[in-house]
Amino acid sequence: MEEKELIDKLRKEIIQQLNLEDMNPEDIDPDLALFGEGLGLDSIDALEIIVLLEKNYGIKIEDPKQGKTIFASIRVLANYILTHQKPQ
C-alpha cells in the first residue's frame, strides 16, 4: 500500500475508532500533531490506537511510551506501519 492510500485509510479508521464525531477524514492534516495542541487526543486514545494497530495491521506495541513517537502524526504513523507490517 502506498503512503497516501494508507493515510486516507488511517484517517477514516481513527475517526471511527476514537469516536471523533463531526469530523471528516479530510479535516485531519496528515502532518498535524495527534496529541496535545493538534488534534487533542488523550491517553485513552493513544491506547486505542495501539489496539487499532494490532487489530487492523497485526502490529504489537508493548510499551505505550513508544506511542509518543509513533503517533506523532498520521504520516509518521503510516510510515511506521509501512516499515513494520509483516508481508501478508
Binding site: I44, D45, E48, V51, K55
Partner: peptide, 9 residues
Amino acid sequence: YFPSPALFV
C-alpha cells in the same frame, strides 16, 4: 480478542 481501553474504562 481485542479488549478496548475506551470501553473498559
